[in-house]
Amino acid sequence: MDEFLLIITAILVAIPAALLGVILLLNKSVMIGDAISHAVLPGIVIAYLIVGTMDNTYVLMGASIAGFITTLLIDFFQAKFAIQKDAAIGTATTFLFSLGVLLLALFFGQNTELDQECVLFGAIETTVIEQVLVGETIFGTRAIFQLLPLTIIVVLFVFFGFSRLKSWLFNASYTTLLGISITKWRLSVLLLLSLHAVLSFESVGAVMLIGLLVLPGATALLLAKNLKEAFVYAVIIAIIACVIGVLVGFQINVSIAPVIIFSNSFLFIGVFIFDRNRKHQLNFTKN
């Protein structure tokens, strides 16, 4: 039963990550995703210091804002400090992440809800403890009920915004010409991303999230012939990797989050080796 709950939790983390990851991959902003996932750490720590518990809407909002500020910070560094893009991303990431780790070391001892291990690995194993019971039957865990709305929102976002997303990802300047505001779409993707980074912090940690973002999407882009297929394949691959990861992690008794990421990589390598159509991969993007 524990395995089953863990698999559901992992899948609910992985599906939105895979969908948003495809967008990031085609938009050449993978590293911004990495920066956001690092940057929610100070947000979570500060919000936790103010509010005092982890499961709180304010913590969620504060930390998402921190993730969102990162993107503004990167833009600010580039525009005002005249730092080139890669260095600006690196600066924002290291600044916010070291702020988070320092606050963690200053205000928390070794054994709290937030510890340094949790930042790296996440603690998906502990999510099964808080179960939601209806009568005698287990209905799910708290993590599942936190992640489910986000997953639904992201799926609906991609489903209903598909044509707009497609034109944006293919050719941004043409989309602007059509009168569609790119900024709005970009900011909403980044907002969803920072919400996701906060909600999945407990399960995969701040450092590993980039794996869930980039790996299923990259595998899907090797296989897919158009954007719709890319989204569908990314979700399927993410689900397969979660099932493998949780089962293998349980079997050899190690932290589960790294194993999920590594099984994603394993799938990527497998697809890369056995994919016969490699020469015919499409380049989706013009920009």
Binding site: K28, V30, M31, V207, I210, G211, I261
Partner: peptide, 18 residues
């Protein structure tokens, strides 16, 4: 592959790190 440079860097990095 036709993946972009930043995607490839992130992909290899997280594979090794995990």
């Amino acid at each position: 592959t036709k993946l972009k440079q930043d995607s490839v860097i992130a992909l290899v990095m997280i594979t090794f790190f995990s």
